[in-house]
């Protein structure tokens, strides 16, 4: 473990680039994040901002032919970026659990639920067959599945969406991981089931004290479970703060616009905030200056930094670029100088 015992995972200057016609384009650019023990770190952003690429980089799911991962991901004094597949196999499922968005395509349709959970135990533990079977039932029980004996013998298609996601969580938990990465774990579920799964994640985390990286696009989910939040835009972290600070005191124009575009209780007949333009594609992304500047053209160029850095504006609250100081919404005062 690194200097501070509370730090589980430290990501430093991570850059994951994809090859498109012999040029590498970074989808995750210069991201530094720390995951502490017993903490839920949410990574929020819209599609294409690089949040899932970040998650898959941590567990080494990228193909080395078309993808280049640079930087450092420190876990237990080893840099995960340089690991070989054999070394990774020891970590995945044991130290790091992964929960995928769509449990139906992540589970093997031809294997019984019990066998799928057992698979990880075969590789990572020295338990014998009976012990493993007992552990499987224990795990299923832990994630709140009724009739564990029967469910262990069923196939994924026989379960409902919520139950399947619970099975995914049971698989992720099977190695008692220090880190769980949950990539949009509730996006495919109904709200009532979503609430149950989120409550379950939170309860389980209290039990096993692991750190969770929760990747989501839903700010409501973030407000319900996260402790700290990192907002990503176009491959960069543009704001990082504790959850209360982020919702009470958002600074970056992107975060503020996003929060204003949620259809909310008290804005029933108002117009929702719309962010002008769209996320530039990976190839066309500007490599210089503030990446958000093209979407807030009414803010003068002088407000942006030339090479935007993360600045600490309050303890633990980081904001990229300086444009937030002069930012106002277009329809607010000051829009004349557009």
């Amino acid at each position: 473990m690194s200097t501070n015992t509370n730090e589980l995972l430290e990501i430093r200057n991570l850059r994951t680039s994809f090859r498109i016609k012999d040029t590498y384009y970074p989808a995750v650019d210069n991201v530094s994040l720390t995951l502490r023990k017993n903490e839920i770190l949410a990574i929020v952003g819209e599609s294409g901002c690089g949040k899932s690429t970040l998650a898959t980089s941590i567990v080494g799911l990228h193909n080395s032919i078309n993808t280049k991962v640079e930087g450092e991901i420190l876990y237990n004094n080893q840099n995960l970026v340089n690991l070989t597949d054999t070394q990774f196999n020891k970590l995945r499922g044991n130290d790091i659990g992964f929960i995928f968005q769509d449990p139906l395509s992540a589970l093997n349709p031809l294997m019984r639920i019990g066998e799928q959970i057992e698979e990880g135990l075969v590789y990572h533990t020295k338990l014998n067959k009976t012990q493993r079977e007992n552990r499987v039932l224990e795990l299923l029980d832990q994630v709140g599945i009724p009739n564990v004996q029967r469910v262990a013998k069923q196939f994924p298609h026989q379960l409902s969406g919520g139950m399947r996601q619970r099975v995914m969580i049971a698989i992720a938990l099977s190695g008692k991981p220090a880190i769980i990465i949950a990539d949009e774990p509730t996006t495919a579920l109904d709200v009532t089931i979503q609430a149950q799964i989120l409550d379950l994640l939170k309860t389980l985390q209290d039990e096993i004290q692991s750190g969770i990286i929760l990747i989501t696009h839903d700010l409501g989910v973030v407000a319900e479970v996260a402790d700290r939040v990192a907002v990503m835009y176009a491959g960069e972290v543009i704001e990082e703060a504790s959850v209360v600070e982020l919702f009470r005191n958002p600074k970056h124009p992107y975060t503020r616009s996003l929060l204003k575009s949620i259809p909310q209780t008290n804005s029933e007949n108002e117009q929702l905030e719309v962010i002008q333009g769209m996320v530039p594609s990976l190839v066309k992304l500007p490599r210089q200056g503030c990446r958000f500047s093209s979407r807030i053209p009414w803010i003068p160029q002088s407000a942006h930094e030339e090479n935007p850095e993360l600045h600490e504006v309050a303890p633990g609250h980081l904001v990229r670029c300086t444009c937030w100081k002069e930012f106002h919404f277009e329809d607010e005062e000051g829009s004349v100088n557009q």
């Binding site: 709200v191 009532t192 409550d199 409501g220 407000a223």
Partner: peptide
């Protein structure tokens, strides 16, 4: 009631109360 109590709200301060309420309704 159950459906309404399950909607995530963007008020992180009151999330524990909401969770209790949700479990009560459930």
């Amino acid at each position: 009631n159950r459906l309404l109590s399950a909607i995530p709200d963007i008020e992180p301060e009151t999330r524990n109360e909401r969770k209790l309420e949700r479990q009560k309704v459930e």
